[in-house]
Amino acid sequence: MSNDVKFPPKPKRTKLKIKLGITLAVLAALYTVALTTTGFEVRPSASSAWHTLQRIFIAPLFDADTRAAFPELVGYMLETIAIAYAGLSIAAILAIPVGFLAARNMTGNNLSYIGKGILNAIRAIPELIFAIIFVAAVGIGPYAGVLAISINSIGMLGKLYAEVIETIDMSKVEAIKASGGNRVQAMWYGVLPQVVPEFSSYAIYRFEIDVRASTVLGIVGAGGIGFPLLLATQQRNWEDVGMILYVVVIFVTIIDIVSGKIRNKLV
């Protein structure tokens, strides 16, 4: 190989280096603030952490009384799943019109901003806050939980639906319009067949999230396994807490596996 290979002059990367320096300085400052204000000192409690962990994760497996509570806890868990399912079913359907409204290629820029703004606002509020509001509005019980879950799911599904609609092939819509179809027909025959698999996939994925979210709703009185969880933690009854967590983990894992398989087939 010869040594006289010609290279163009190397680009000067001063700007890039300055940017990198500033970024690192900002990150360092943020870390310093975060670490100095949070306080890491351990306040010793009556029982050691190790002892508590042992009571949560190991004791329930050998404690006959705790094991006897298993069927009842499964009942609570099924109620939790029912809340998630009901909330999601409502949301999966109501999110469709909202998604169309928020999709830029369906309604134009202005309406789309309004639709997306509403969806962003909904998503900024956590489920628990909605649950507290609905418990106050419709009373303690799973109904409040269903409403909280469905509102929040509309927030996320509406946004995801809108994004799916924005990526479709608009030429199909043009073809329906070119044959004399009206707007509604163009959406039904040109848009929906393209988006239904993605919509279903997102809805199922959201169901996984909703099951997890529903497990804590009982803490504010909105039904499900969160209620016994609240009691057990308040009484420092760690064996029961452990058993409840086992039930939650088992069911959530099963649901994640099954829904993952279904989603793989869909898209």
Partner: peptide, 30 residues
């Protein structure tokens, strides 16, 4: 007007996930 003027596109613009018969029927929508 558009029901009277049929259009054929380069990318044929059929809806992929619908049957051939249903795609053909969509010509009647107008």
């Amino acid at each position: 007007l558009r029901t009277k003027t049929g259009m054929i596109f380069q990318q044929h613009n059929l809806v992929k996930r619908m049957s051939v018969l249903r795609n053909t029927l969509s010509g009647r929508l107008g």
